[in-house]
C-alpha cells in the first residue's frame, strides 16, 4: 500500500502579517513563523496509523511551495513519513487551489498511490478545495470531512464517516484508489520519536521544479486583498485591566446578567 499525504506550510499566527491596503496585498512580516497546517497533521497521523495496522505500507509527504516549505516536509519525516517530496515554486506568488491541485497531481501521477490524504482545509486561504480537486484530476473517488476510516481486509475499499452540520456523520464506502480530506479530531497526532528526528535530519528530500510540470493555465486571478467587510459593531472597553473588569461587571449587572 502506498499512501501520499499532502502537507501545506502555513504561517503560525495571522497577527504577524503585514497588510498594504493601498496596494491590496498581504505579505509576511519579519516575525512570521511557519508550521504545518493543523488539518494535515491529522492526515499524516492517520496515514502513519494505517501503515502501522498494515505493517508494509509506505507513506510519502508532499508539499508545494517555495524553499521554506522544505522544513515542513522534514517535520513530516520526523513524525514518521518514509519519503519527502518538494514541488518547488520560485517565489511567494499565491497559487490558487486549482494550480496547487494540478501540481500535486502531476508530481504524483505514475507513482501508484492507493490512498491520498489531505486536510479538509488550509488554515490560511481556507479554500477546502485541493483534496477534492486532486481527486477529480487523478480520476479517484473522494470524501471530505473524514472523521473515521477503516480499510477493508482485502485493501480494495475503505469505509469512511464524514462529519456534517451539527456533528452527524454520513457513512460511505469508497473504492481505492481514493482521496480523503481529513477533519480535525479523527486522531491525536503523535510527537516525533528521536530515531525519526535523527533520520529526518540527514534524509534527502526529492525536489521537483514546479515549472517542469505540465499544468493547465490558471482559472482565476486575484484582483486585490480587502479589509474585512463590516467594521466593528460593538464597543472596545478601554482603561487599565481593573477598570475594564469593573466596566464589564457594571454592564453585566445593568443587563441583569450578573447577580448584584
Amino acid at each position: 500500500m502506498k499512501i501520499l499525504v499532502c502537507v501545506k506550510q502555513v504561517y503560525d499566527s495571522p497577527e504577524t502579517l503585514v497588510f498594504d491596503e493601498a496596494a491590496g496585498r498581504v505579505t509576511f512580516g519579519p516575525h512570521t513563523v511557519f508550521r504545518m497546517n493543523r488539518y494535515d497533521e491529522y492526515a499524516l497521523e492517520e496515514a502513519l496509523r494505517i501503515r502501522e495496522r498494515l505493517g508494509d505500507a509506505v507513506v510519502d509527504a508532499l508539499s508545494v511551495g517555495p524553499p521554506r516549505v522544505g522544513k515542513t516536509i522534514r517535520r513530516a519525516l520526523e513524525l514518521g513519513a518514509n519519503h519527502g517530496i518538494h514541488v518547488q515554486t520560485r517565489d511567494e506568488t499565491c497559487l490558487s487551489a486549482f494550480d496547487r491541485a494540478h501540481l500535486i497531481a502531476a508530481a504524483s501521477r505514475g507513482r501508484g498511490y492507493d490512498l491520498v490524504l489531505a486536510g479538509i482545509m488550509a488554515e490560511d486561504d481556507m479554500e477546502s478545495q485541493v483534496g477534492p480537486l486532486l481527486a477529480a484530476v487523478l480520476g479517484y473517488g473522494c470524501a471530505t470531512g473524514v472523521i473515521f476510516e477503516e480499510l477493508s481486509a482485502d485493501g480494495r475499499e475503505i469505509a469512511v464517516e464524514r462529519e456534517v452540520e451539527g456533528g452527524s456523520r454520513e457513512c460511505l464506502s469508497l473504492a481505492l484508489p481514493c482521496v480523503l480530506a481529513i477533519q480535525s479530531g479523527i486522531n491525536t497526532p503523535r510527537y516525533p520519536a528521536l530515531s525519526h528526528v535523527l533520520r529526518a535530519r540527514s534524509a534527502e528530500l526529492e525536489c521537483i521544479e514546479a515549472s517542469s510540470l505540465a499544468v493547465p493555465p490558471p482559472t482565476q486571478s486575484l484582483v486585490c486583498i480587502l479589509p474585512p467587510a463590516q467594521g466593528r459593531q460593538g464597543e472596545i472597553i478601554e482603561g487599565t485591566a481593573a477598570e475594564k473588569a469593573d466596566t464589564l461587571i457594571h454592564i453585566l449587572r445593568e443587563h441583569s446578567l450578573l447577580p448584584r
Binding site: P14, E127, T219, Q220, C224, L226
Partner: peptide, 30 residues
C-alpha cells in the same frame, strides 16, 4: 473555475474571506 466560501460579489468578481476572517480576497474567474 471554482471559488469557495464566497461572502459577496463585486463587478463580475467574487469576494471571499481568508486568513481567519482578517482579510478578504476579490477574485476574478478566468
Amino acid at each position: 473555475c471554482c471559488i469557495t466560501a464566497v461572502e459577496d460579489a463585486g463587478e463580475g468578481t467574487f469576494i471571499r474571506s481568508l486568513h481567519h476572517g482578517r482579510f478578504r480576497a476579490e477574485v476574478r474567474a478566468d
